[in-house]
């Protein structure tokens, strides 16, 4: 395993550039992915923040959804932030009726759970597995995790405020998801944690 893993960023829509920058800071080689064949030869994949309904529609329209599901089933390490978390959920609430997800994490995720943009917020969070103090959580029309299966490890919950206690970061095998956007903060510890997951999966 080379020390610089190749990590794709699903580039159908969303904050692709911020994830690519964060991955580069975490010593990974980031590569945008828009076509099924671009999924080959990746060591890991990030599904970025964005609008999950748009991402889902484009993934179906351009024949990516099937290959994405297959890669995740085969064990490709994946990380999803915000819309990416929704894409990795086995079940979603408050989505569109026809909204497809990639799935892979045994959880039920509620879309726009914290409310509209006026309710979007920042808060400091302790994230299990991230050393060096709390992480600045940026929540933008964010989802939360309503419930998880037995195989899923909860890494963070909202510490205070009206939404205190809700699950906002989870991990199942080498699949990671956060409600918040570490890619917007300049703090790359969550991406470093994912990059480590990618490295150890390839060993």
């Amino acid at each position: 395993m080379p020390s610089t893993p190749v990590i794709g960023v699903l580039a159908l829509q969303g904050d692709v550039r911020e994830h690519a920058t964060a991955l580069a800071e975490a010593d990974a080689l980031a590569r945008p992915v828009r076509r099924p064949e671009e999924l080959d030869e990746l060591d890991g994949l990030v599904i970025p923040g964005g609008e999950s309904t748009t991402m889902s529609k484009l993934a179906v329209a351009f024949g990516l959804l099937g290959p994405l599901r297959e890669k995740v089933r085969e064990g490709l390490p994946v990380y999803g932030s915000c819309a990416g978390m929704i894409m990795l959920a086995d079940k979603i609430l408050d989505g569109r009726d026809d909204q497809e997800t990639v799935g892979g994490i045994d959880m039920t995720v509620r879309r726009n759970a914290f409310g509209r943009q006026n309710d979007s917020f920042e808060a400091m969070l302790d994230v299990e597995g991230v050393e060096g103090g709390p992480v600045q959580g940026v929540f933008i029309r964010a989802p939360w995790v309503e419930s998880v299966g037995a195989q899923v490890r909860v890494l963070a919950t909202v510490p205070s405020g009206p939404a205190a206690g809700h699950i906002v970061a989870v991990c199942q095998d080498n699949r990671l998801a956060t409600s918040f956007h570490p890619e917007l903060t300049g703090d790359h510890r969550v991406h470093a944690m994912f990059t480590d997951m990618v490295r150890s999966a390839a060993r």
Binding site: L12, D15, E18, G49, V138, R141
Partner: peptide, 28 residues
């Protein structure tokens, strides 16, 4: 936008939350 004082309680309407919302619309 990148250096607000980290606060313990949730904070709405920050520059990062406002600008970050637009980042999520990119490519759309």
């Amino acid at each position: 936008s990148s250096s607000p004082t980290p606060s313990q309680s949730p904070e709405t309407g920050t520059a990062r939350v406002k600008r970050g919302m637009a980042e999520q619309l990119k490519g759309g």
